[in-house]
Design a protein around this nucleic acid. Structure first.
Lengths: 198, 198
DNA sequence: CTGATTTTGAACCGATCCATCCAAAACTAT
DNA sequence: ATAGTTTTGGATGGATCGGTTCAAAATCAG
């Protein structure tokens, strides 16, 4: 066979993802990616083809790391549905207030990318839309279950409330990135939970 | 005296603002700015000093165009406070669903900039934070008035509810940019209003 | 009409952008 | 040990980046 790689592709992908996450697509240069991953240019291009492709894989990787556990939580039948959503929101808060390299949240790669690229990169938009549908479906299912259990207000359709919760999560992330402190973001989450209770 | 300009500085600024608004700071090149404004490079730099400075002025201009009318609405004592907020949210929806150059919303320059730059440009972050404080104050005042009138739920402080409404607005904008249709965004707004009613 | 002053367009600047190329190094299967 | 294959680092590519310079054009006061 041939010379084996001296690096781990998954670790490199994680490092690249973190770089895109912190600085966005445009502001992350290929040089930045080399430094973040510790690879040379040749290795980066040999492994990931292009900056765009590496970003696409970073998005997928992020979804795998973030959306999958969120879905698992939302489908956890051992918890009352409203409690699942409360925990989901608490995790979002935690996420925004840990790992703050420059004293500020780096937000959420999905939200960041919707804002930066959805309007002019149809491929990225499609990936994001698919991920969002999955999340909305899980949210809607949990909310529907909560409604049937009488634990969540029934005056609006589950799908609408799912959209609402999803939007509040995005709003919390924007607020945190804008400098809001932890108590302020927690209050947003708590108010959203209020809105779901009958 | 000397040769007068053949262009209107305010119109040029508006055009530049729109370019930044649609594509973000990094993705808007000085060449793009020349084409958007119709000016030559010399005129742009002679008038606005640098891309950064032009962006700063674009941010100010945007706040002037958007925040000022919103504040005026929130302080309109001829309307019941909750109605002011309902109208505010309706205007946000309208804003997201008109002027869609590529069939998608270009969002809100403030939200876009928080996401793109707040983490690594302290000057931009300061401008955004100041604008947000003004908006939160006006929102909080309207909500407080609504609470005293018994028209808005009093189980949370006005300031917290203001943060909540502000976050929902950001979430609506992200949702619209992510491809949500008008009914979906309106449902988010309606649910937020529900959360405010006693 | 002249002189002073500013705008304007085009050429130009070094730096950086993303990406490619190539030869040397490294490793494995034979 | 050798042949075959892949990785790797460094040099290099054209394009574009934000920004400057400069002379020609344009205007107004005198």
């Amino acid at each position: 066979m041939a010379r084996p790689r001296t690096f781990d592709e998954d670790r490199a992908l994680d490092a690249a993802m973190r770089a895109f996450w912190a600085n966005g697509y445009e502001a992350t240069s290929t040089q930045d990616l080399c430094e973040a991953t510790g690879l040379g240019r040749s290795s980066v291009y040999n492994t990931f083809s292009s900056k765009r492709e590496l970003f696409r894989r970073s998005l997928d990787r992020y979804n795998e790391l973030m959306t999958v556990p969120q879905i698992a939580l939302l489908e956890d039948r051992e918890l009352p549905p409203l409690e699942r959503i409360r925990i989901l929101l608490a995790r979002v808060v935690d996420g925004e207030f840990e790992n703050r390299p420059q004293g500020r949240s780096i937000g959420c790669l999905t939200v960041n990318t919707v804002v930066e690229l959805a309007g002019r990169d149809p491929e990225a938009a499609a990936v994001l839309e698919r991920d969002q549908e999955v999340r909305l479906a899980a949210l809607g299912a949990a909310i529907g279950a909560g409604q049937r259990a009488g634990e969540i207000a029934g005056r609006r359709e589950a799908g609408e409330l799912a959209r609402f919760v999803n939007a509040v999560i995005a709003g919390m992330r924007v607020a945190a990135k804008g400098g809001a402190d932890r108590a302020a973001v927690e209050a947003i989450a708590a108010t959203a939970v209020d809105a779901l209770t009958p």
